[in-house]
Amino acid sequence: MGTSSTAQRGRGRPRKMAVPEAVTTALRLVDEEGLDALTTRHLATALDVQAGTLYRHFATKQALLAAMAEELLAGCGDPLPDGLTWREQLAVLAGRLRTALLSRRDGARVYAGTHSVGPNTLGFADTLVGVLLETGLPAEAATRTMFTIINFTVGHTLEEQAARELTGSDLPGALLMLHTALDPHVYPNLAAAEPTLTGTDFDGHFTHGLNLLLTGLTDPPPPARSAS
């Protein structure tokens, strides 16, 4: 007869689990089944550990999500290329965040609302605020602007990933409903814009929105001349 993995460990001794292993497995499960299917029990089964083992490392599911979000942001705060304007630097950072969230199924949902204090999350935020401080913004305004850029990026990516989840007959059906609702006699402006409304140029939508946001930031004042 075969023996179970627990028996093979001897007298039911609990399997040891490393936090990185749990985070990697949780992200894999989300890729395979979506965030809604991720539960502590499901993750514990995939790791072959008791649920209590997970709770020792992640007291709540929110703590697990924060650890997953921290892993998603790896590399986002890396040094920026030389020779970029401050607007280009901000665009690179926002693009890194979007790419990181898109790298995993439901990545934006995993990240939204988390409050990680890990080096990936804080490093990204520090780099972003640093660029804004270099423009001459005071710390409060730079921090509020950081939140605005992050919130725009996360909100856009939430919508983008939700739209990408519409597969098979769902997407054509949704587009048909929208086409039918856009009566040009009732909604002439939206009807004229139907190709854009029903398009899937998410890169274009993101770039356009980010450009609007960054254009709203004033250029830093020129350095004061010293009295001769």
Results as ranks from 00 to 15, higher is better:
34 G>C: 13
118 G>P: 13
177 M>Q: 08
92 V>T: 05
147 F>R: 07
59 A>I: 07
183 D>N: 13
225 R>V: 01
215 T>R: 13
71 E>A: 14
171 L>G: 06
83 G>P: 03
110 V>Y: 08
216 G>T: 07
75 G>P: 05
48 D>E: 06
71 E>F: 01
10 G>K: 04
190 L>I: 01
141 A>D: 14
78 D>H: 03
50 Q>W: 14
48 D>N: 08
73 L>A: 06
125 A>Q: 12
194 E>P: 01
2 G>W: 06
80 L>H: 04
22 A>E: 06
177 M>I: 07
190 L>P: 01
170 D>K: 01
114 T>D: 09
120 N>A: 09
33 E>R: 14
28 R>P: 00
179 H>T: 15
6 T>K: 00
201 D>F: 07
196 T>L: 11
153 T>I: 10
190 L>A: 10
137 L>K: 01
198 T>K: 06
222 P>E: 12
32 E>I: 00
169 S>A: 15
57 H>I: 01
219 D>K: 05
88 E>M: 03
194 E>V: 06
200 T>I: 09
117 V>F: 13
64 L>N: 10
57 H>W: 03
204 G>M: 03
200 T>G: 05
22 A>C: 08
151 N>D: 15
137 L>S: 03
49 V>N: 02
21 E>N: 02
6 T>A: 11
174 A>F: 13
51 A>G: 12
166 L>V: 06
145 T>P: 04
39 T>W: 12
60 T>W: 04
90 L>F: 05
51 A>R: 15
97 L>C: 08
212 L>M: 11
54 L>P: 11
104 R>G: 07
117 V>D: 15
174 A>I: 07
167 T>M: 05
34 G>S: 10
168 G>N: 05
189 N>H: 12
173 G>K: 00
196 T>K: 06
47 L>E: 02
193 A>G: 08
80 L>V: 02
152 F>W: 12
132 L>I: 00
79 P>Y: 09
80 L>T: 02
74 A>S: 14
94 A>K: 12
146 M>E: 12
50 Q>L: 12
157 T>F: 09
1 M>T: 07
216 G>M: 03
112 A>I: 08
136 G>R: 02
200 T>A: 08
159 E>T: 13
117 V>G: 14
24 T>H: 12
145 T>L: 03
156 H>M: 12
215 T>D: 15
86 W>V: 02
198 T>G: 05
105 R>N: 13
77 G>M: 00
93 L>S: 02
154 V>H: 03
62 Q>E: 15
98 R>K: 11
159 E>S: 13
81 P>T: 02
24 T>P: 00
96 R>V: 13
117 V>I: 14
224 A>R: 11
131 V>E: 01
24 T>G: 14
116 S>Y: 13
213 L>H: 03
136 G>E: 05
121 T>G: 00
108 A>K: 08
68 M>Q: 10
194 E>I: 04
57 H>G: 06
